[in-house]
Design a binder for these strands. Structure first.
Lengths: 122, 122
DNA sequence: CCGGATCCTTGTCGATACTG
DNA sequence: CAGTATCGACAAGGATCCGG
């Protein structure tokens, strides 16, 4: 998904909106990052890393770059870098909330039999 | 995701519903299969394979098994096998429709600048 | 033909160690 | 603290083969 050359240049499998959304967000981590930013509104690198799902640092860095290049997230302080410079959702990112809400609702209803300890978070 | 030993036995990263939904559906192909079954209500192996996204046959077979083991899809004729035995959504699978609708809406609005040929399908 | 299984190559993931 | 480097494991993709 994210060899440097592909940053900001996704490969579209088709013109279907659903497939195109999955071209960008169809992996195990991107929407977890968005979820964290819906819950907390602002998050640093190490706060992402401490989420219970346990993303590893290289994957986290690559996903943050990816989502930033797509204007789904942004650095709160665009210049002066790194150290304690947290991320937040853009408008485009905030608009993903209904997607995550519907997914969360579906999971709570339909996964509780096979995943007994599932609980509401968002 | 789908070594034989893991069929029907997903690994849950956390108790968060969103993360759990992504544990099952967070890849590039599973929701494409669900989308096809929302559009067409019934589909054979080769019909899936002919969708514009171009899934390869080994990935398709593995995802169909995976989704079937999770009772998201099912064979229309449970016994008498294979040959032209199409798949359909279960209730659990049909309940994913709002998730796909929200994703499709988001993509149409927010991806059209970077993906000019995006069009509505579902 | 259709529904896969198999083989092989390439790419991506993920753990851990390390650096500015 | 915010990443990058490295390396092994595994998944994706393409091509081809096979049984009914």
């Amino acid at each position: 998904m994210n060899t440097d050359s592909e940053l900001q240049n996704p490969e579209w499998r088709s013109s279907c909106p659903i497939a195109s959304g999955l071209d960008i967000l169809g992996d195990k981590w991107s929407l977890i990052i968005v979820r964290d930013l819906i819950e907390h509104s602002s998050r640093t690198y190490s706060e992402f890393a401490s989420s219970p799902e346990g993303i590893s640092t290289n994957i986290l860095a690559s996903r943050l770059k990816w989502l930033e290049s797509l204007s789904i997230i942004e650095r709160i302080n665009p210049d002066k870098p790194s150290r304690n410079n947290a991320f937040q959702l853009t408008q485009r990112g905030k608009a993903l909330r209904p997607v995550l809400e519907e997914l969360g609702k579906w999971s709570q209803i339909h996964l509780k039999e096979i995943h007994p300890t599932i609980v509401k978070i968002i």
